[in-house]
Design a protein around this nucleic acid. Structure first.
Lengths: 211, 211
DNA sequence: AAGCAATCACCCATTTTGGGGGATTTTAGA
DNA sequence: TCTAAAATCCCCCAAAATGGGTGATTGCTT
């Protein structure tokens, strides 16, 4: 059975190019081409694709949101992101949205086919450089105004722990934790847990996941 | 100036092997070898290494905690993890701890030198398979007992938002959020935010970072 | 000596949380 | 279409958590 493929890409040259290439492959069948996510989503059920090649930059709904929508409707469908090396945050977010891998925009025929076959085989096709971008997005903590202890406390806050629980974990009194929190709030110029977490997270001062 | 290198690895064959290999390189100087982190940490200041080759599996303090300690004392020191492909969670955690890259255990001389040079040049050396493991650790959300809405609510909880804030964000009343929370607690068999977050996180039901 | 980090204490008002009821409407599947 | 699940909302209550204020001690580094 031929693998059903759809392509969502606003640049018609690239769209047609990929389509032409993939149509030469015996085991593939390009069932539809779209210039945006909105159009694709209306007929995705009928298209019933095994593979979606998705651009990230798109007019209207972007490829990340589009990936999430598609995975919601067709969980078994594999979305491969067509991309050029750029924003590591976007690469990361698209993975979270359920992207199955990456295809570099100016790949040649054999590379594209290889990527798609790898995806169909259950792998996660991507170039080393793209993988590194994702990895990078976890380190790069810029210098923080918070002390070590304060960071530790804020990390615990981000894990949903109460002041009492944090105090127990760090073997200090609840009052100490409260003082730290006050200092954190003053330094970050916020006055709530949520705001502190948001700032600390966007600056990579905390890890984002429980340690 | 020669780059100072120390090796922390409990397997003496591997330790001596790496050392012998690196000593043949003109620009490197292996200044010390250790079988565990504890010993290494006592004299790390004197060793003043540019590069640390660190095993993950170690008696006593493991390589992840060791990496964190070393980065705390010598922030500019680059820690490269010596590893075999195994646990993606450990690979991820070591990155969070500040690891600068990975060296596969049975690499040959030129690969090792290449990895170290890449690290010194500011890169993040690692094999494609290791990078993929990290990437994998973000998808693979197993099936959750939570509904979409409940997941959305729990995600917000993990971001430190109060019920009121979540209600505002989702355009529903605070009472609705409370009901969702109750259902989440019942399904996960917990009775606190922290516990719910911990479970949801370990099962990848929430992303761990604000969306 | 001054500054900073970390520790702890007590006061206060307000908000949040968790658990117990019960109810309606919308959605989706059998 | 009937039904079950999901999502929405409301009330009560007590306990806990939170945020802000003021103040104090210790120890370390500069």
């Amino acid at each position: 059975m031929k693998k059903r493929i759809i392509i969502i890409e606003d640049n018609s040259s690239i769209r047609e190019g990929f389509s032409a290439v993939l149509d030469t492959v015996e085991s593939y069948e390009v069932v539809n081409l779209y210039g945006n996510c909105e159009d694709a989503l209306t007929s995705i059920e009928k298209d019933n694709p095994d593979i979606v090649l998705m651009d990230i930059e798109l007019p209207g709904m972007d490829g990340i949101a589009g990936t999430a929508r598609i995975k919601k409707q067709l969980p078994n469908c594999i979305v491969l992101i067509i991309t050029v090396l750029e924003d590591s945050e976007k690469v990361f977010r698209s993975l979270c949205a359920g992207a199955g891998g990456y295809i570099v925009k100016n790949s040649n025929i054999s590379e594209i086919v290889q990527n798609i076959d790898e995806a169909l085989a259950g792998g996660a096709p991507m170039s080393l450089s793209i993988a590194k971008m994702v990895v990078q997005s976890f380190r790069q903590q810029q210098d923080s105004p918070l002390t070590e202890r304060e960071t530790e406390v804020l990390q615990s806050i981000a894990e949903g722990k109460s002041y009492s629980k944090i105090a127990l974990d760090l073997f200090v009194s609840k009052e100490t934790i409260r003082t730290h929190i006050k200092n954190i709030y003053r330094k970050l110029e916020v006055s709530s847990k949520a705001d502190a977490i948001k700032i600390a997270n966007s600056n990579k001062w905390v890890t984002g996941r429980p340690l």
